[in-house]
Design a protein around this nucleic acid. Sequence first.
DNA 1: CGTGTTATCGTCAAGACGACGATAAGAAAG
DNA 2: CTTTCTTATCGTCGTCTTGACGATAACACG
Lengths: 221, 221
Amino acid sequence: MLVAVDLVVLTVRNDRLLILTIDRGVDPFRGQAALPGGFVRPDEDLLDAAERELSEETGLSELRVHLEQLATYGHPDRDPRRVISIAHLALVPDAADPTAGGDAAAARWTAVGDLLDDPGRLAFDHHRILSDGVERARAKLEYSPLATAFCSEAFTIGELRQVYEAVWDTEIDPRNFHRKVSKTPGFVVETGATTTRQGGRPAKLYRRGPAELLHPPMLRP
Amino acid sequence: MLVAVDLVVLTVRNDRLLILTIDRGVDPFRGQAALPGGFVRPDEDLLDAAERELSEETGLSELRVHLEQLATYGHPDRDPRRVISIAHLALVPDAADPTAGGDAAAARWTAVGDLLDDPGRLAFDHHRILSDGVERARAKLEYSPLATAFCSEAFTIGELRQVYEAVWDTEIDPRNFHRKVSKTPGFVVETGATTTRQGGRPAKLYRRGPAELLHPPMLRP
DNA sequence: CGTGTTATCGTCAAGACGACGATAAGAAAG
DNA sequence: CTTTCTTATCGTCGTCTTGACGATAACACG
């Protein structure tokens, strides 16, 4: 049985949640859009394989990418070659555009909303994997500080709020959000600096705090 | 690369969280305790394979078992034969004792606490898998009605509370728990019957309600 | 210097929570 | 039959959190 890893790579740009897709350069599904991924090497750990494929097929190899295992898909009919795939979820800050490589003919950011609305656009069972990955990301923003993975090293609370709004596709009251984030222990810590890059009154800059879990969690409306 | 499924099968009996372990009947680790599991057949879905192994190795094949995928373990050194394992989590009501079969020389319930305290007792990386499975179960009791999977079809709120206490290893105030459960929409519905099997005043019997997620969630102390 | 924009701090009422008192309804003991 | 014991169920109270929203602060721009 063949073993592969696939990647759901998400970022937030201009208040929209984007996912990285490639155009397949090989059969099956040659030419069709798909998630980046590839086979696991015999002496490779799964997470290492995911990291390698991310770097090979998309050129993204930042230090600041959050990578975790998502789920494994093994239905006998999901791939004519009988491949089981361990899908991974990657969250990256809004950074440079990807560059195709490996078995990928092209690599680009696509709006998640558009892909979710069109189940036939992605090859294999990748629509299902995408949908599971987005749901995982939405859920994790509730009880973990992972939203910071979409931000640059230092960020304002307003920028963090825009991440939540993009991923959850909702509007959040800026005042209540500010209160909640600053009162949740360990979520963010002040850097001391301020910025005006959002316009308006200068905002304090924060970086991610030490907390791994948020108590109490952020609540999706 | 070989592909297997392993199972973390949990139940609650006498206010303790128990896990199903087998004694391995074949090499490697012959004679040592391990999680039940086995290889996935070429034309089999992963969840089907987990269900089959549960039935083959332990004789548990109830309709009322909750089964979900947990995570996949693929470190190159985890098994000398280079096996990756898709671990599954099964929650079953306190029912008949298991009967060994397949590659298992014996099957029995073991206290989870004892196994967690002794990392060397289980074969392979099964201690890690067990620990991940227990943590998943603990987390899911917070935001899902899955605690009902440990109860019989009809249960009292007191019995449900004992499940929470066993899985979380805490004490919960019966009055606040009663208020919380009965006020969370869709968690439980009355059957109309009552029972005195817990002693004391007769308690109303409930069955699981339609909710898939609990809003607001139960909170671990 | 006004105006627009975002940040940050308060206020207030509604709801949820933890601690715990009180009553109810059965079984078992005397 | 009465007392006692046990568990179930309902209520109260003070505290904390939340959502809705007012008010002020501090910058850029024309």
